[in-house]
Design a protein around this nucleic acid. Structure first.
Lengths: 338, 338
DNA sequence: CTGAAAGCGCTTACAG
DNA sequence: CTGAAAGCGCTTACAG
């Protein structure tokens, strides 16, 4: 049960140099002669030598490991973000430790302990928030923290957020322009910072327009919740004609409930706007007009921030969601095609 | 830029014991007195000590890290499997190193080198196949290999597969029972072992039934491909009335093309069967009858195999896909409800 | 049951 | 530019 594997010693012997030289030859900035480096590289190549990152991580203050802490990995938006993040991180020469926090409440804490055990250089939170005290422990251990669509940043961490509020406001404008007069807001009870911001942006803009607002909020953020949301909303005597769903997953469910359970035509009798622009929003059965998360930019921003030493002050990066216009919102005036 | 972090030495000092005792106190099977262990545990707790897995991985022949090698992480089926795998692995006390192989062709090789660098205990392949030589290198480094829905196993590795062929055959029987007579097979050009097996199972059963088979195969495995597949199939003069899509993603696209571009009613005029049972198959717009991947069982089998020392011979685990009956296949006889 | 010592594979001052 | 030496934080025979 032993693990052979070739070490720097083997390479040194073959190249006829010291172990120190092997290390230098393989370290980008190190001072070493061209000739020695070439000999070492050749020997390493020949033996199939791979630096043991465990050992190097023990010495240097960088392991190259970034922890990704997320729940609901199987969900469209999360999965997409995960893909983008791992890709960018790999391009930056980092490796991803994926920690799933679906189970139990103390799992964020356990995730962080794991991350510390493996001395990850940083932790990126896609879900959940670390308790204040734990976050501090992480930072004491030299970990940097990236919080995506989370609440509060703290020194040494960065917050990557979207202008969710603005999107909520814009949704109202779009719905009004579509001629809708009975607006509704459909959301889950998840209460994450992004959902709350989308909700309040929408709510405030509706009020500002002097209209009544129907609000329905239940369960977790899912297709199934959307189905129920749609059922409740469509069953009302003052059935809404325009609804903003804080998430595409819920929007899809809501659309299905409206169409199949109530025979409501979309967008003729009901306009729907979602958020996230998940792949399914683009499927012909939905053709959902939605605010797209700039996933690549989010991943890029997180990775970039981790790359450069960065200021110690808490940073906040705000990206904007861009509307993807499809066919779930009524168009009053036919576009003038030339 | 140094990383403080408390070490076993600190704990030893506080508890008034040697570093060796700290190690023993924190190792499940070690011989140590109850009293000493208690003192150590208390001290560790107090200092917030976390064993440095980098250092322990250097010594023991186990790092607790499992590499997960996958492409198209954002895709429904993959994302789901990823979620299940990380969950099971974590339950088993392992940690997941996620390696994304979407970029370039040599990325599987790079992925494996990364895995070796971090001395992962094993690598689980969800996509791609390691080159023979590289796989050998991995095994020489003591890594075990799990191949999910891949081709050939080799000693020291396990292959987890589905009875794809049987599902293909069964699809024919279902379609025939639904009264379909012009059967079609719709697939992508990905040519993975699972797709090939599903295809040949279907093809052979159609032939055995003495029917003609229309076969359409293009592009990558995606919704968009399904759209094109559906367009081609529905445009034929001998339009099929029953089709088996080797993947739900393609089935959804195919259904949309049939309905929205050709006005074909499903399941009245066209019966469709998919494979994977992704979440969207259950959405009301699709209600797709599909063969479900036993995702939890797959993840469980992989994890279990990694847990017990296992035989050195190549192992093969075959799981079966179970049909999830929905509403995309015509039912000739009304079920007799009591 | 416990401690002192060796060693895992690396990197990095320190001399030369 | 290079090598000998120290040390990262752990585990594990080896004595006692």
């Amino acid at each position: 049960m032993s693990r052979p594997s070739v070490s720097a010693k083997d390479v040194a012997d073959l190249a006829g140099v010291s172990r120190a030289s092997v290390s230098r030859a393989l370290t980008p900035g190190a001072t070493i002669s061209h000739e020695t480096r070439a000999r070492v590289v050749a020997a390493a190549e020949k033996l199939g030598y791979q630096v043991n990152r465990l050992a190097s991580g023990l010495i240097r203050n960088e392991t190259g490991i970034i922890a990704l802490i997320a729940s609901e990995i199987g969900t469209p938006y999360r999965a997409q973000l995960l893909g983008a993040l791992t890709e960018k991180l790999q391009q930056a020469g980092k490796v991803t430790l994926l920690i799933n926090t679906d189970r139990s409440d103390e799992s964020v804490e356990r995730a962080l302990r794991q991350a510390i055990s493996y001395r990850t250089d940083a932790a990126i939170f896609l879900s959940g928030m670390p308790a204040w005290s734990l976050a501090e422990t992480c930072q004491k251990n030299g970990m940097r923290l990236v919080l995506i669509n989370r609440d509060e940043a703290r020194p040494g961490s960065v917050l990557v957020r979207l202008d969710d509020r603005a999107a909520g406001e814009r949704a109202v404008a779009l719905l009004l322009a579509a001629g809708c007069r009975r607006l509704a807001l459909a959301s889950s009870e998840a209460g994450t910072p992004s959902l709350i911001a989308r909700e309040s942006g929408f709510r405030d803009a509706v009020r500002a327009a002097g209209l009544d607002l129907v609000e329905e909020r239940i369960g977790v953020t899912s297709y199934r919740t959307g189905l129920e949301l749609g059922t409740r909303l469509m069953a009302r005597s003052d059935r809404p004609d325009g609804v903003f769903c804080t998430t595409d997953l819920m929007a899809c469910g809501l659309m299905d409930a409206a169409r199949f359970r109530f025979g409501v035509e979309i967008p003729r009798a009901l306009s729907v706007i979602g958020f996230d622009d998940i792949a399914q929003a683009g499927w012909e059965s939905y053709a959902l007009t939605s605010f797209g998360q700039p996933i690549d930019k989010i991943a890029g921003a997180a990775t970039d921030w981790l790359q450069n030493p960065a200021e110690t002050a808490a940073a906040r990066i705000t990206l904007s969601a861009s509307l993807v216009w499809r066919n779930s919102v009524r168009q009053l005036h036919q576009p003038h095609n030339s």
